[in-house]
Simulated scan of single mutants.
Amino acid sequence: MKLTYILTILAFGLLGCSANGPIYQEHTQSLKDSSVVYIYRPSRAINCCVAPAVYINGENSGSLKNGGYLVYELPAMKHEITVGDGSNGFEPLTYNKSLKKNESYYLKWVIGSIEELNLPALYAPRNYYLVEVKADDAQIDLKKLKLSRP
Rank of each mutant, 00 (worst) to 15 (best):
M1W: 10
K2I: 15
L3K: 15
T4K: 12
Y5V: 15
Y5G: 02
Y5H: 12
I6D: 08
L7Q: 13
T8F: 13
A11C: 12
A11K: 11
F12D: 04
G13Q: 08
L14V: 13
C17P: 04
S18L: 11
A19W: 00
A19K: 03
G21P: 02
P22G: 11
I23G: 02
I23Y: 11
Y24A: 02
Q29R: 15
L31W: 09
L31G: 05
D33N: 15
D33Y: 14
S34C: 08
V36D: 00
V37R: 00
V37F: 03
V37Q: 00
I39S: 00
Y40E: 00
R41Y: 05
P42N: 15
C49W: 13
A51C: 08
A53K: 14
Y55S: 06
Y55P: 00
I56G: 02
I56Y: 03
E59H: 11
E59F: 07
N60A: 14
S61C: 10
S61P: 04
G62L: 03
G62T: 07
G62E: 05
N66E: 06
N66F: 02
G68R: 02
Y69V: 03
Y72A: 01
E73K: 03
L74A: 05
L74P: 03
A76N: 08
M77S: 13
K78F: 05
K78W: 03
K78M: 13
H79L: 08
E80H: 10
E80P: 00
I81F: 03
I81M: 05
I81K: 01
T82V: 15
V83M: 04
V83I: 14
V83R: 01
S87A: 12
S87R: 15
N88T: 09
G89Q: 09
E91H: 09
P92F: 03
L93Y: 03
Y95G: 00
Y95L: 01
K97R: 15
S98F: 12
L99A: 01
N102G: 05
N102P: 04
Y105E: 01
Y105W: 09
Y106K: 01
L107C: 05
K108P: 00
W109T: 04
V110D: 05
I111A: 04
S113E: 10
S113D: 11
S113R: 10
S113A: 09
I114Y: 00
E115V: 10
E116A: 14
L117G: 06
L117E: 13
N118L: 08
N118G: 10
L119Q: 11
A124M: 11
A124K: 15
R126P: 00
N127R: 11
L130T: 06
K134Q: 14
A135N: 10
A135F: 01
D136Y: 02
D137R: 06
A138N: 05
Q139F: 06
Q139T: 11
I140W: 00
D141N: 10
D141Y: 04
K143Q: 11
K146Q: 12
K146D: 06
R149Y: 13
P150H: 08
